[in-house]
């Protein structure tokens, strides 16, 4: 794999939110949502981020986009640090990194027509002038597979899949280098999911786009991603090449995730699987062990003593795993 400058880099992102449960006299207890996440995304590639609901993957997206303030950590856009920029300085850079949200219904202002939604940011940033903006909108709608006449309509006149196409068109309109896709297909029907995923893939090829794809559907993430990071309780527990990671999961949590995917083949119903017990959020009683240890079928006494670091896997330098017993046979 060629090692050029990453388009988007996250360095040790940390963010904690006040938790409702524990309250002290003056200060609320803080619950870490994102706890030291780092990754690089290279041009033209897709980095997939998977994990259960509440593992902090959407918070990562918000931190990257500057929608939430980082507690600590760094975000780089093509080598330039952007997390410390004042809002005014950041604004001219914003067109370069765009975001598509999960809920397409609330992503579009119900009182605006598609043409207003698409044209206003382009005109503001000077991507298109008033005489070229109509042609540019037609082009965008064509690229996302919608008839150009639809620009006269209001968002509620569209289906969920069509709305998501409009959101993608809006993200594309400013000619971004990278698009953060926060569960863009999770709210859609399976058949529509496939269409949107194909669209995203085609667009990536045509425009050499870079994606951060966040999802909990393993099929979708595997289909679209070149590299994948698996998150558990705010930490990256494993990352690596998509096919490799799916073929030989090294972290027991990744294995459990893969084993949890229902298989249509009846003959495989009794295959050996790791089945998770317990709930997300149970920390080891000792307070500082591996966060997955309480649910991990492979956990040993040493797992409860310290948090395993994300280390390259022996024999596969592109893979990193945060597990003491990584790579052992199940």
């Amino acid at each position: 794999m060629e090692r050029n400058t990453p388009v988007l880099s996250a360095r040790d992102l940390r963010k904690a939110f006040p938790s409702d449960g524990e309250r002290h006299l003056l200060r609320k207890g803080m619950h870490p949502a994102v706890d030291g996440v780092s990754f690089d995304i290279y041009p033209g590639q897709t980095f997939g981020l998977v994990g259960e609901s509440g593992c902090g993957k959407s918070t990562v997206a918000k931190l990257l986009m500057g929608l939430e303030k980082l507690d600590s950590g760094e975000v780089y856009l093509e080598g330039q640090r952007i997390d410390q920029l004042a809002p005014k300085k950041l604004r001219p850079l914003r067109p370069q990194f765009q975001m598509v949200f999960q809920d397409s219904g609330s992503s579009l202002n119900p009182r605006k027509r598609v043409m207003d939604i698409l044209s206003e940011p382009m005109l503001y940033h000077g991507v298109a002038k008033s005489d070229t903006v109509q042609a540019r909108m037609d082009e965008l709608l064509e690229q996302v597979g919608l008839p150009r006449e639809m620009k006269h309509r209001y968002p509620h006149e569209f289906s969920g899949g069509q709305r998501q196409r409009i959101c993608i068109a809006r993200a594309l309109s400013l000619r971004p280098k990278v698009i953060v896709l926060d569960e863009p297909v999770s709210a859609l029907d399976v058949s529509v999911q496939a269409q949107i995923l194909n669209l995203l893939r085609d667009l990536q090829e045509q425009m050499h786009l870079t994606y951060l794809f966040i999802g909990h559907g393993l099929g979708a993430v595997r289909y679209i991603s070149h590299r994948i990071g698996v998150m558990y309780m705010g930490r990256l527990v494993e990352s690596g090449d998509a096919e490799e990671l799916f073929a030989h999961p090294a972290h027991p949590y990744t294995r459990a995730l893969l084993d949890a995917v229902p298989v249509a083949d009846y003959a495989l119903r009794n295959r050996p699987r790791i089945t998770l017990v317990g709930e997300v959020g149970e920390l080891p009683a000792s307070g500082n062990g591996c966060p997955f240890a309480p649910r991990c079928p492979m956990a040993t006494a040493s797992c409860l003593e310290h948090v395993p670091e994300l280390k390259p896997l022996a024999g596969a330098p592109e893979r990193t795993v945060a597990c003491l017993r990584a790579g052992e046979q199940r």
Binding site: R94, P95, F101, H125, R170
Partner: peptide
């Protein structure tokens, strides 16, 4: 999300 996407669009 539409206000958030305005923020991310740099409006």
């Amino acid at each position: 999300n539409f206000c958030k996407s305005d923020i991310t669009s740099g409006m």
